[in-house]
């Protein structure tokens, strides 16, 4: 598949990436008082959760010197940059500049937070005004997220199925049924959030995690990008 077709396919899955919710991470992977990297099409994020449990998605770039905020740390209700300690609140506003302790930071200094919500154990982020709520994966619960270095076409070929209108792709590997909520990443790779039936046991979830590993091996072997590498 050439790159133009690939872009079209992913665009087809995310027709209005600018005003659509993208599943960026599992809620359990961003526990209280932590920060982790995340991605929207063309935009790096710092996903973070305050000590009190408030989730936020900032642009992954400190407005001071450009350091990735995902390398920073969460103390209390604020995200701090690892470089010079500029701290940002849940609304994105800068609340503290350690080198100027008596100054109230101007409102223009902002970490550019995006719209974010949690539903079904998944953190959803939207770069502008979402027109509708994120899809409801009723009856499914997330197990893990993994990066697959393959095109959507290779994933669909490996699954012998196509992603549905919710961005959900189902596959059966050695008798284990998994669903994957897909999100675009930079380059020829996708982020797959693996989901299983809500009544799955711990053993079922481990089996689903292993099935996802096997699925990734299949999809990457089928991907023209990995064959060329």
């Amino acid at each position: 598949m050439d790159l133009a077709t690939l872009a079209w396919k992913i665009e087809g899955m995310f027709p209005n990436a600018l005003c659509q919710w993208v599943p960026v991470a599992l809620s359990v992977d961003v526990p209280a008082a932590t920060v982790s990297p995340g991605w929207l099409p063309g935009l790096e994020l710092a996903l973070w959760r305050s000590a009190a449990g408030h989730i936020a998605a900032s642009s992954n770039r400190c407005p001071h010197r450009g350091m990735r905020l995902s390398h920073g740390f969460v103390r209390g209700e604020n995200l701090s940059c690892i470089y010079h300690g500029w701290s940002f609140g849940p609304d994105g506003g800068c609340v503290r500049i350690p080198a100027h302790p008596d100054m109230t930071p101007p409102a223009t200094i902002n970490s550019q937070n995006k719209a974010v919500l949690e539903a079904g154990g998944i953190v959803w982020v939207c770069d502008s005004n979402p027109k509708s709520p994120p899809p409801d994966f009723h009856g499914l619960v997330p197990v893990r997220s993994l990066t697959i270095e393959a095109s959507l076409a290779a994933l669909e070929a490996a699954a012998r199925a196509v992603a549905d209108g919710k961005g959900l792709l189902a596959a059966t590997i050695d008798g284990v049924r998994i669903h994957m909520a897909l999100a675009p990443l930079a380059g020829p790779q996708l982020l797959a959030h693996v989901l299983v039936a809500a009544d799955s046991t711990c053993e079922d979830r481990i089996a689903a995690s292993r099935a996802a590993e096997a699925f990734r091996r299949m999809a990457e072997a089928m991907s023209p990008e990995s064959a060329a590498a």
Partner: peptide, 14 residues
């Protein structure tokens, strides 16, 4: 790293 991630994920699921 992928092998380590898979093993740690199974530990977390338990």
């Amino acid at each position: 790293l992928r092998e380590l991630e898979a093993a740690l994920t199974e530990q977390r699921l338990s």
